[in-house]
Nucleic acid binder design. Structure first.
Lengths: 226, 226
DNA sequence: GTGTGTCGTTCCGTAAACGGAACGATTCCG
DNA sequence: CGGAATCGTTCCGTTTACGGAACGACACAC
């Protein structure tokens, strides 16, 4: 995932105070909910959480559990990371984009998570990338079977496995299996604009199974209408 | 999707119960910690959380609070999103039904407009395509200089100018200049899933709003928080 | 050997997040 | 004007995640 691939391994980021961050998350959740025209009651019902829980979450008066966040974000159809956002969320205006986007920054790479597709057996994450000229960025390996598909629109990029990066100019496309460390480097001095699709063969399947009664937690994709 | 069995189950034996998501997070945290050579006790002490809490978090036997996750990831110096890992998107399996999406349908091609990028001199439109097996579809010519960039994820597609279509299988990418009539045809009988990016060199006529791409304003990390 | 340090896990009382059920405030019908 | 929906918030008993303090295991001194 991009969080692995694009973030500096030692990346430190402004981290708001806990209540501030929780409040941020609440605002983001509320924004996503209202964007869809869903009422608090309806979302709470659909996500299987209490109205009090969701109200407290949106207002920042509670310190939500991961399970709660999972349930709510899954029902909203956004990645959990988007709800958490980055501390700098809102600071970056992407053309045609809303400020709720998840923006990932590394030394040289800035990525905006555009969309997540959940199919039967795979998950796609679609990013828009801007790679700045200068020092290359190396990202550690991902999990097994993850592939990255990069389409360049401006500039020239050298990207791929550290040992054998591929070069792509405007309009060209490169793909590689990203279970090995890989690198992003601009060729020349023109910033690179590209789209990046990451394919995860094993999709995350919603909230973690609860302990206790061993419900065979299937629910590969949450029921639209519980 | 909180399981109701959680409440009915009463006090069962404290079984660790394999639960994917939380356990994944635990593994990731443990990996990051061991990567740094820090002991569990030391990290717990430094992060200001109890050893029991961290132990339970790493082993997946607890459902951590956001506050806990924040404290631990802050001490590890990684973004919270990295601990979370793969974004979980549940409800949105097929964006075709999104009320805000522009859906383009032809005889064989169903495309969902995912995003529009307006840059200084170009406009990008990003689609997700599903091409049904069967009769091919022919699209008329676009305006001058328009290019299409197609990345295939499932199935095999033959697409491009009518006179010289290109073939692309899973993971492959094709591009063509679409100022001539072009065709989409499935090779074989498996539906094709792909992403399509259309690049229009025509600039947007509106006033240039402050856009992130145009301003590479590197702000690094403003306020690191220990 | 005994003592002292740390390691990660488990026990336990407490604080708090949880869902359900109330609440007042709207809005929409009859 | 009720009456019945729904909205979001608040109250409350239950559930559970929390940190501190134990525990056994292991390593190194002396």
């Amino acid at each position: 995932m991009l969080h692995h691939s694009l973030m500096d391994s030692g990346a430190q980021n402004p981290r708001p105070a806990v209540d501030g961050g929780t409040l941020d998350i609440g605002r983001r959740i509320r924004g996503l909910r209202e964007e869809r025209g869903i009422s608090l009651s309806a979302l709470a019902r659909a996500a299987g959480v209490g109205k009090a829980t969701l109200s407290g979450l949106e207002n920042g008066t509670r310190n939500p559990t991961l399970e709660t966040l999972w349930a709510v974000t899954a029902e909203l159809g956004v990645p959990l990371a988007m709800a958490i956002g980055t501390p700098a969320a809102g600071a970056v205006a992407d053309p045609g984009g809303d400020e709720r986007s998840l923006v990932i920054r590394g030394t040289a790479v800035a990525g905006t998570l555009l969309r997540v597709f959940e199919d039967e057996a795979v998950t796609y994450e679609l990013y828009r990338l801007v790679v700045r000229a200068g020092a290359p960025q190396i990202s550690p390996a991902h999990h097994e079977g993850v592939t990255e598909h990069l389409t360049v629109f401006a500039g020239t990029l050298s990207a791929g496995p550290v040992g054998a990066p591929l070069r792509a100019g405007p309009g060209e496309h490169v793909s590689w299996v990203s279970d090995v460390p890989h690198v992003y480097a601009v060729v020349g001095d023109q910033d690179v604009h590209a789209s990046l699709l990451i394919r995860y063969p094993r999709p995350r399947v919603g909230p973690p199974a609860t302990r206790g009664s061993g419900d065979p937690g299937e629910e590969g994709s949450p029921a639209p209408h519980p």
